[in-house]
Amino acid sequence: MTRVSSPDPQRDEVRAAVRQALSVAVATGLYGVSFGALSVAAGLSLGQTMALSLLMFSGGSQFAFIGVVGSAGTPAAAVATAGLLGVRNGLYGPQVAPLLGAHGGRRLLAAQLTIDESTAVGTAHPPGPAARAGFWWTGAGVFALWNLFTLGGALLGDALGDPRRYGLDAAAAAAFLALVWPRLTGAQGRLARLVAAAAVVAALATTPFLPAGVPVLLAAAVAILVGMLTPVQPPGSGIQPDPRAARDPATRQDDEPEEGARP
């Protein structure tokens, strides 16, 4: 990002943060269409689909939830999978909370809006008005558009009928692949690729024997083992708000800083 000199650099920073927030919100919101359509295809009602986007509001967890429901998993497995995929949001809190200084009701609102995108944009700007603008505009923008497009997708999915005829079951697999892809590529992806391969083997090997939803949780157990037992690399590779976690690979390319992962 280039910064032009101007009489009020701080206002320029804020304006840049807002612009970035809006472009991220549009890109992310758009694929709320796929979530809405896939959720209805997985057997959820329009109301349940909207409840997920309004209340859960975390793309990875939502896709996982409908994935487990769609494959006839138990409610417990759906809750556990969605919760585990939401764990990273808990790690974003300590990074954005000091930037926002929110209390009371505002803190609850900030918590609900703490997702990959708002964290990535908020922490990409210097602490102060620009960081706050980046977080709030991204969070609110994604929330509004994500829900709007979820509704559109759900109505569309309802109208389509048999999801298999339109390849929506394959689209669900592709959506998960697109979500995990940025985490597997790049210089720091070696351990991630190893874990991904182990997860695939563990899930598929146990699918014939375990109830639906459980093989996926077993894959998480593999990751916890590897994560806790493998020696940690030098400091700095730790709790950076991984910008690659942003949901849409497209927004990542021009909007978010990378720490040397990109040539």
């Binding site: 995929l85 697999a173 695939v200 077993l218 976690a245």
Partner: peptide, 20 residues
Amino acid sequence: ARTASLVTVALLSALVAVQA
């Protein structure tokens, strides 16, 4: 932090396989 990130990778990868 690393374990949380790996859990995300594992869950999403397993979901790809199962959905496919």
